[in-house]
Design a protein around this nucleic acid. Structure first.
Lengths: 144, 144
DNA sequence: GGTGAAATCTTCCTGGT
DNA sequence: ACCAGGAAGATTTCACC
């Protein structure tokens, strides 16, 4: 068996849709037994294809009503400082190092416009920022 | 009990770190019994705070060696067409509707530069594009 | 790689405080 | 809201193909 055959593809799709499915439930879907599904999943984990299992929370319900991307242009020597600053901010979801004039891109969420303003102000100490506010997410796709 | 007390916060943190933890394991961590943890999780799900449980796959291991954001400026009347196009593309992870001159922002992955070029070319039929290639992800933060 | 069966653990349900 | 106990079901391990 190759690690990315049809059956494992279906297992990956199922686990992306619901990571708490039991091996028995998955086994029924793909036409195998539970131990055999468990073995396949273990190999996918060992190979690093499955990185982790995570619960996705609803930002709105936690008070984060705004989502934005902040492009930060700053010297590479400040990257570490930005990263350390970001570590303590629940508002910062991800920090990307990107190619081009803009050097860092931050995926952020905020509880209010004032909250967002504060983030941008603090980031301004590192370099120049450009903020793109998100209206809505039109689509989300699974990986497999 | 309020739905977002200290205990539920810890449960949410644990489930974000590993969505496949058993109720018994979580119960040991937070000092409760399994049925009581199960009840709390059920309420968090019902309230929509927990949206879903998902397996996170490693894009690299699936052949997606490139990550990029594509900003697409196009008339609002084309949004639906873009969305339909994106639906059939495994390369497109998310589509955001954003404020400003740029109207849509696509989070994409590609297997090669040629693959990325093809995406950009196809998107060009909807409007003007600007692509930001991602070097690396410096940080990822949990929500709670 | 896969199965089937036994031992162990988890979950689900009920009833009690 | 939480706990305890028991039934039902899931996981894990192992011998076998």
């Amino acid at each position: 068996m190759t690690l990315l055959d049809e059956t494992n593809g279906r297992i990956l799709t199922l686990l992306q849709q619901n990571a708490r499915l039991t091996h028995a439930q998955i086994a029924r879907e793909v036409g195998l037994t539970a131990p055999s599904v468990a073995e396949r999943i273990r190999k996918l984990e060992d190979a690093g294809i499955i990185e982790r299992y995570t619960a996705t929370l609803n930002p709105q319900k936690l008070g984060y009503t705004l989502k934005a991307f902040i492009h930060l242009t700053c010297p590479a020597s400040r990257y570490r400082a930005v990263q350390e600053w970001a570590q303590n901010k629940k508002e910062v979801r991800e920090v990307y190092h990107v190619l081009g004039q803009v050097s860092l891109m931050l995926d952020v969420q905020a509880r209010s416009i004032e909250d967002l303003e504060k983030l941008v102000q603090e980031l301004s100490t590192f370099g120049t920022t450009e903020t793109t506010l998100v209206f809505s997410t039109l689509m989300h796709q699974n990986m497999w």
